[in-house]
Design a protein around this nucleic acid. Structure first.
Length: 648
DNA sequence: CAAACGGTTGATTAC
DNA sequence: GGTAATCAACCGTTT
């Protein structure tokens, strides 16, 4: 084909270095070349994206756009404000496109989206070129080499991966970028459905995303936070390929750190600097290439004179886990990110289970409040008011910075699910989805399943203590004092159990340990919301029982609700609450009422539902805004952030 | 078929 | 104060 007119569609590959897809596009030797980003309403309105991750995305886009312009003054990242599914067919025609090139994406929604775009391209006679580059190995190829099964253990990845072939060496960034063609806009912009807007709670003012296809100034510029209605980000971690490559250089320059890195030996309490690389958000947005990272590290390891660490604990080992989760998601699709209909996720009768639309088999984004107590614990966990300083410090760091250490994630995830609250891992995954700047659908869902012992990992009796675990890393409680300033002057010997501090010590430290953690308050830190040892024992009992029952998310009994017959009154709290330390007594009636409608057939196909928590909303105004996430009526969403409307 | 073994990252006690 | 055994006991794979 002569005179190629090429669209390069940037997605989660916001970089110029080591991009096999970009290389393929430039190899066409285009006569006209448009680097574009489509402002997808599925991400803008139907994903849970907190302000810190928005900022990180805009950073990446701005940096990339600048790098493109550096290579060609006429070019930039052209940001088009319309859904790709409706925009592309028009661009193909008006711009006389011959080729569309993009990097492969195996996220469940991305597959649907890309299939739609690909079909439209084929109908328009446009050639589509798709290259793998987001993971070490193409996730579909990895599954194929794993006997067509989802990769559920690291040894499976280590065995299946090399069967595909060697991990490709990185390729340098292009030196020049061809001119864009004329940008004709003689077509109608299709306005998206902006309701529901799952990010409405984080916006401080109105969103102007789609007022004009080329943006407010008509220059296709990357939007500002102001324009999107978001307040200033609070995180100090910033995005962009330039920053990512500099960070990588710094890590690689420290040969000992790079070659002997052992993840389980890095301190979750370290800050300024943190003990791990902080490169995960860059891998998510593609501002750093995973192959670049792999080979830069591997070359140091190969030349290291001392004893280097090995996968899975080494730096490259971390990438193997990422590929494992991508492989699991590639094989299981939408169901990987939820319990129901997931053939590889154990069923545990957690509190606050997701609502599911049985026509689409997808979670709706709402959840059952089967226990007012659990809902209160969930809110206190989310906002760092549990009364356990280690947990609260981590959750506050997460909200402010958008990042916490991997072992910190273990601690809060174990606490919310199998080692404390006995609340569904899907609730925790949603909070991480909103607040993490490195949120990656497959890794998030996979890690939550791991920590809740519903897949990948099964040793539920290994439970993280919010007291003993942090003591191992930070005897002085510096980390807690940093993120829970109420406790900054408390004697270190009480720092993980402040309720044990005598009144005299509390007075001396200028803090009183009292109240139920309704809100953050100067000089006051809440009492612990339960006795941890009691809760751990109750949870382990519950897990034991649930493992014995042995149901998975796709079991008919799980889907039709008859699983309850198998649990009787044993297990944690769910049915009669006899291991709930007595606290559930007054809620039994309420629980029964919920059981009738919970998970049974035709409920919740978007039908309105009363609040089951029995008027527990009052007194929580400070966080009430987020609760309505549990009551949204329109649109369905999967935990990979995207809505699928029910076809009726 | 049973037993042994490995599984990136627990807590507590004994030495 | 550091290392090792013990605690209770899961899964899936290998022998």
């Amino acid at each position: 084909m002569g005179n190629p007119r090429v669209i390069y569609w940037f997605r989660t590959d916001l970089r110029l270095h080591d991009s096999p897809a970009l290389e393929a596009a430039l190899d066409l030797n285009p006569e006209a070349f448009w680097p574009i980003w489509t402002w997808d309403p599925q991400y803008v309105y139907r994903a849970r994206v907190g302000t810190n991750r928005w900022q990180f995305l805009l950073d990446c886009q701005n940096d990339l756009s600048k790098s493109i312009t550096k290579r060609n003054k006429k070019s930039k990242l052209f940001l088009m404000r319309e859904a790709p599914q409706t925009l592309f067919p028009k661009l193909f025609k008006v711009w006389e496109i011959t080729h569309l090139v993009f990097e492969k994406d195996t996220d469940a929604y991305a597959r649907d989206r890309d299939a739609t775009v690909k079909k439209a391209a084929e109908e328009a006679g446009v050639e589509v070129i798709i290259k793998s580059g987001r993971t070490l190995w193409d996730s579909d190829a990895l599954v194929k080499k794993n006997h067509e099964k989802p990769t559920m253990s690291i040894s499976q990845v280590q065995s299946a991966g090399p069967k595909i072939g060697r991990i490709p060496r990185p390729i340098p960034a292009p030196e020049s970028i061809p001119d864009p063609g004329e940008i004709k806009l003689d077509f109608e912009q299709q306005q998206p459905e902006s309701d529901p807007d799952f990010n409405n709670d984080s916006r401080s003012h109105g969103d102007k995303s789609y007022e004009r296809i080329s943006g407010p100034n008509g220059d296709f510029a990357v939007p500002t936070m102001e324009e999107l209605g978001f307040p200033t980000a609070t995180s100090s971690h910033r995005g962009g390929e330039s920053i990512a490559l500099k960070m990588l250089d710094k890590i690689i320059a420290d040969e000992k750190y790079t070659a002997t890195f052992e993840k389980p030996n890095t301190a979750p309490t370290a800050f300024e600097p943190q003990a791990t690389t902080l490169l995960s958000p860059h891998l998510h947005f593609g501002s750093l290439s995973v192959h670049e990272f792999y080979w830069r590290v591997q070359d140091v390891v190969d030349n290291y004179s001392g004893k280097a660490s090995q996968p899975p604990v080494s730096l490259t080992g971390q990438l193997l886990f990422r590929d494992m989760y991508f492989g699991a998601q590639a094989a299981l699709g939408y169901s990987f990110c939820q319990t129901l209909y997931n053939s590889h996720c154990r069923f545990i009768p957690w509190h606050l289970p997701s609502k599911v639309d049985h026509t689409t088999r997808l979670v709706t984004g709402e959840y059952h409040i089967d226990s007012a107590q659990a809902e209160e614990w969930f809110q206190r966990w989310k906002y760092g008011l549990t009364g356990f300083p280690w947990i609260d410090a981590l959750m506050r760091q997460l909200r402010r910075e958008g990042w916490i250490h991997h072992l910190g994630r273990h601690a809060v995830a174990c606490f919310l699910t199998r080692g404390g609250c006995y609340i569904s891992w899907e609730r925790g995954a949603e909070v991480f989805e909103e607040w993490l700047i490195d949120h990656e659908t497959a890794c998030n869902a996979g890690n939550w399943q791991w920590l809740s012992c519903t897949a990948f990992f099964a040793q539920f009796y290994r439970c993280y203590s919010p007291i003993a675990f942090p003591k191992k890393w930070d005897k002085d409680g510096k980390f807690v004092k940093r993120y829970v300033p109420e406790l900054k002057d408390l004697d270190a010997k009480y720092i993980y159990e402040p309720w044990k501090a005598p009144i005299a010590d509390q007075k001396k430290a200028g803090v009183r340990i009292q109240g139920e953690g309704k809100e953050e308050q100067e000089g006051i830190y809440p009492k612990p919301m339960f006795d941890f040892n009691e809760r751990r024992d109750a949870c382990i009992d519950g897990m034991k029982k649930a493992y014995k029952v042995g149901l998975y998310g796709d079991d008919p009994k799980v889907i039709d609700g008859t699983w309850r017959k198998l649990f009787d009154d044993a297990g944690e709290g769910r049915t009669k609450g006899n291991t709930f330390g007595g606290a559930m007594e007054e809620e039994v009636g309420e629980e029964k009422a919920v059981q009738v409608d919970d998970g049974n057939g035709e409920e919740n196909n978007g039908a309105p539902e009363e609040d089951e928590s029995g008027g527990k909303e009052e007194g929580n105004e400070n966080k009430g805004g987020d609760r309505k996430g549990a009551k949204r009526k329109r649109g369905q969403r999967t935990p990979d952030s995207h809505v699928k409307r029910s076809k009726k």
